[in-house]
Design a protein around this nucleic acid. Structure first.
Length: 116
RNA sequence: UAAGUAAGUUAAAUAGUCGCUGGUAAAUUCCGAAAGGAAUUACGAGAGGAAAGUCCGGGCUCCAUAGAGCAAAGAUGCUAGAUAACGUCUAGUGAGGGUGACCUUAAGGAAAGUGCAACAGAAAAUAACCGCCUAUAAAUUAGGUAAGGGUGAAAAGGUGAGGUAAGAGCUCACCGCCAUUAUGGUGACAUAAUGGGUCAGUGUAAACCCCAUCUGGAGCAACACCUAAAUGAGAAGAUUAAGCCUGCUCGGCGCCUUCUUAUCUGCGUGGCUUGAGGUAGAUAGUGAUAUCUAUCCUAGAUAAAUGACUAUUUUAAAAGACAGAACCCGGCUUAUAGAUUUACUUAUUUC
RNA sequence: GUGCUCAUAGCUCAAAUGGAUAGAGUAACUGCCUCCUAAGCGGUAGAUGGGGGUUCAAUUCCCUCUGGGCACA
């Protein structure tokens, strides 16, 4: 298994957020952009401080990462992806199932999924 | 049984599958001359009572020399003790609250000095407006007085009796206040006795201030090391080889290479977890706590690790209360569902 | 991590050494004027961010909590 590589720098996030394409699910937004690395996907998760306090933000991050790992093998490589939480939606909706559905929807729309 | 008071405990558990962080391994594979590095496998670890707020105190590091004194600025402020230290804690004292168990309390000095006390009121600090009384007099003047009235948050000890022209600590009794002495206590202070009517300087220091005690500054993004690149400064060398000021020389700017040093940006490593440590017991102490003995090693990340799914049990509810370590400790403050233990108080009923 | 600063009417700003009833503009509602509207004139309405303390009295002084903003490394 590979590790999932994360976006780290501030300018990388800004790149993706400003130039990437926007997709939205029920409670998650995503920006997706093509990457220079051909064999790897980069994942970034950003959740604002105004949405919740640290424990709940960590919880949402973990849920997103977990559900991304389950899908990761079936995605075409060469993209960098940033997930955001929608501000208008309560934190109580943050289940594993909701997030998993959302991520599947988003990749469906973006047509990244490997058809094999 | 009901209503309370105080001090605590806990913060779901077990099994399986997938996955994460770092540690160990004379393990396996790959790279490397080596040191070592990477991957796999196995093993056993992996957030809190507040990790939070950043309100105090320390360790540690650097700057600095701060060894001593003065000034400034700031903090604290009943007593004794605990502690590395504290604005914390413990035990008490005084004051206040509660029927009570018990709770609250920044609680030195107002006779060192300064300031302030709006409005109302005669007067807000060396009191006299209306009154009362005496003499003169007749819508007044002079004197005595501080009972009564009124204002105010506060008006110069309170109540009663005597006394007086009217009154007044003017005198007396009781209460309060002040001083001295004695006794008890380490002490704050308490109790008792004696004396004091010059008891006529009211309040405010969380106003300035005085007194006593304490404080050098900055903070792990501190600080140390390594690598690469850029910029500035300095030195040396090379040679006029590109260029400008000029017709030439000197000189200046600038350029090339090397070295030193400084700054900034970015990467990595150390700092980084064995510590004023935890657990149990004994001893000393009312207690905070201290000493001794035994035993244990228990997160160390850096876009940041604890999650997801399934099953079972406990439960009123397992979709969870508040909530995520970031150098480390001691406290304080704030948030917090449910369960539960111990001691005590009051009321009612029954025996 | 450290330090500083602010919070007053729906909005923008005042006020003062602790002293009485906390003001102004604008917005809102309403009356007059007008055939109607605008403009103009008049009127109406506030938990000084929450809680506690000192004081006779607190927006002001002290403590604590909440929220916003700024700076440095």
């Amino acid at each position: 298994m590979k590790k999932t590589k994360m976006l780290k720098k501030n300018y990388e996030f800004k790149n993706v957020l400003s130039k990437g394409k926007y997709y939205s699910g029920f409670c998650i937004e995503a920006f997706i952009r093509k990457n220079n690395l051909k064999n790897e996907n980069l994942l970034g998760i950003a959740i604002g401080t105004k949405i919740a306090k640290a424990t709940k933000r960590n919880h949402i991050k973990r849920l997103i990462r977990e559900s991304y790992k389950n899908i990761e093998d079936s995605i075409n490589t060469g993209y960098s992806i940033v997930f955001l939480w929608k501000k208008k939606i309560d934190i109580k909706n943050a289940n594993y199932k909701n997030i998993k559905k959302d991520i599947e929807k988003i990749f469906d729309k973006a047509e990244i999924l490997d058809e094999e």
